[in-house]
Amino acid sequence: MTGQILWAIFMPILVIIIGLIYMGLARKITARIHNRYGPPFYQNIIDVIKLFSKKDVANHGVMFSLGPVIAVAGMVISLLFIPIGNRPLLSFNGDIIVLLYLLVIAPLGMALGVGEGANPNGAIGIARALTLMLGYEVVLVIAAVAVMIHAGSASFMEIIRQQQGGVAHWFIWPLFLSALATDIALQAILGEKPFDQPIAPHEIASGPMVEYGGKFLGMLQIYHAIAIIVETGIFVNLFLGGGSLVWWFVKSFAVFFVALLINAVMPRFRIGQAFKFYWTYPAAIGLVGLIIVAIT
């Protein structure tokens, strides 16, 4: 019990650091693909420290300040409900559906904070994010339902248990179409191109983040760092069989890496196109996968 509590306190910090490193690596890798040199991989850690030490940050009100707080808190709670490295922390107390809903707390809190910032760019960014979410959530759910029906359970630990015993047992093989659909959805969940419309620095000045500076931006960086781990982690747990701590992070980075590669070479969809895209091809792929699962 005590071990668990210590782990629960330690793990978020670990994940934040790893997540920030992921982000730094992402910048580096993207730069290399673009034939640039790029910043060092620990650049984001430095950034966060710098942001936190900044004084005199513009503040638009209580909800504005609470937004990043809830964003971090929401991501941490999601993190705690995901088994990392096959260590069930709290996931006995909630299954995939619970997690899907916990995942929403963070963006919702952030969106409320952005709202009080009263910058129309922020609101447009949120509107885009929500539209995108309506797009990919359908795909994600189609895939998740397929997994749940295949496993006969909605519990993470049960799903991971069924995938033990080598690569051949991973759900990615029997549920290939679902995994594919999930991976396409993941591109938007991670906010990578061609689905980065909510941020779209060139159009709406980074959208939701537009009013946030200093420690708020730092918290949003942390939030993003955790989010990458959580979101890739879901894919790892559902389709790649979890794994021990190191393996888990390796798999998670692999998933992230695929997203990065696509991100580096893609332009950005218009938001409408992105939405439409999700409700057509990936949804169709996912549905075919779902029907196959339901029949067999």
Binding site: H60, G61, V69, V76
Partner: peptide, 26 residues
Amino acid sequence: SFAFGLLLYFIGGRTRKVHQYDTFLA
């Protein structure tokens, strides 16, 4: 988790209350 978030909030520096029209419009 919320306490953790608040902790991060208090680690950071002070904030300054600004008028609502004081927004970034590039």
